[in-house]
């Protein structure tokens, strides 16, 4: 199972970077979202997959999946959500002010 997930993470990384290298703002933000999905998958896989029950204490269960990566991913999800929303509003405002969402057209003056 692990290697399949890691290959999937690799696909996510590749598509994320392909998107990051585009010039439309939307594509770039999509790239960051895909990148964080890939990272979450990697963290989860590193903690071993499908080894036991959900980490909710129950007297009948002795084997739990590793709760630590889950806690880390939870933190990461929230942080990347914060950043994504900020990026989105930033991109929105940028496009609004500059009348374009093409990043190649957003150049400062020389010697600015």
């Amino acid at each position: 199972m692990e290697y399949i997930i890691l290959i999937l993470a690799g696909i996510l990384f590749a598509t994320a970077i392909y998107n990051l290298l585009q010039k439309q703002l939307l594509r770039i933000i999509i790239g960051t979202v895909l990148l964080s999905h890939g990272a979450h998958l990697v963290i989860l896989t590193m903690g071993k997959l499908k080894r036991g029950q959900p980490p909710i204490l129950d007297d009948a269960v002795t084997d739990y999946t590793d709760p630590l990566p889950q806690a880390l991913i939870l933190t990461s999800i929230v942080i990347s959500f914060g950043i994504t929303s900020l990026l989105l509003v930033l991109a929105y405002r940028t496009a609004q002010e500059n009348k374009t969402d093409n990043i190649e057209e957003m150049r400062g003056e020389p010697n600015e």
Binding site: Y3, L6, A9, F13, V42, T45
Partner: peptide
Amino acid sequence: TNLVVSLAVGVTMTVLTLVAT
């Protein structure tokens, strides 16, 4: 170039994580 670079990053990360796991 975009395709090559993104594929290279994807493959590198996959290999790296596969080795690590």
